[in-house]
Design a protein around this nucleic acid. Sequence first.
DNA 1: ATGACTTGGACACCAAGA
Length: 270
Amino acid sequence: MRLASWNVNSIRARIDRVIAFLDRANVDVLAMQEIKCRPDQFPTERFTAAGYEVACHGLHQYNGVAIASRVGLADVAESFPGQPSFAKAGEEGVVEARALGAMCGDVRVWSVYVPNGRTLDDPHYAYKLEFLRALARAAGPWASEGPIALVGDWNVAPLDTDIWSLDAPEAATHVARDAREALAAIERAGLEELSRRYLPEPHTYTFWDYQQLRFPRGEGMRIDFAYASPALASRARAAAIDRAERKGAGASDHAPVMVDFVDAPGSVVP
DNA sequence: ATGACTTGGACACCAAGA
């Protein structure tokens, strides 16, 4: 099974590229982030025509996550247990559309979009830390349950070599010690990050800002990752970052991250 | 080379991203 994760930065603006990518990269399951629409606006029929089932969770033009699968899609869950809400000043808290889980074949796949954080003194930054900590708590029991993948846009650059410049002001929320610590809790919960296993080269990026010619200058960040439980990590064989998807007109600012898994030992291929 | 980000919503500006 080939599993891909991609912050598409609007599924409606990116649908042609996404469908072409599924075919070109031979993707079985695609976890999307930042779909930027509600379910009634999601181009479901384009995925159906390509042979994929779709689940999506979106509240409005911000955030939003989805999963497309051609190996089955069942037991869909919006938000993870204990997912924190965010309250704008003077408003009720809202559990934002940042996590979606589904059974895809025998793998439980979660598409995750961690809050950006904006700036270190912004309420969104505390929200980001709480989101990561709550997800690590939820993932603790999952790690020993079976094949589970947590993939998405984590908005944290764990290593100094995961970013072109530690001094970029927009990077502060992605390299801060407590942000990195909050992400490390996911690994301490027993999950392994698989893109790093196969792609350890420093300055291997998954995101390049639209501004300041970041992509042509090679100035990016590595913030998209694929975590897996031991039962799934043992079945991983390869990973790739599809840098080509950042090229050309109409590209997302993120590239897809892909991981290949072999079938479980003893599984029967229908 | 004298450039300068993209998206969606209500609107020709703004919030949000990172």
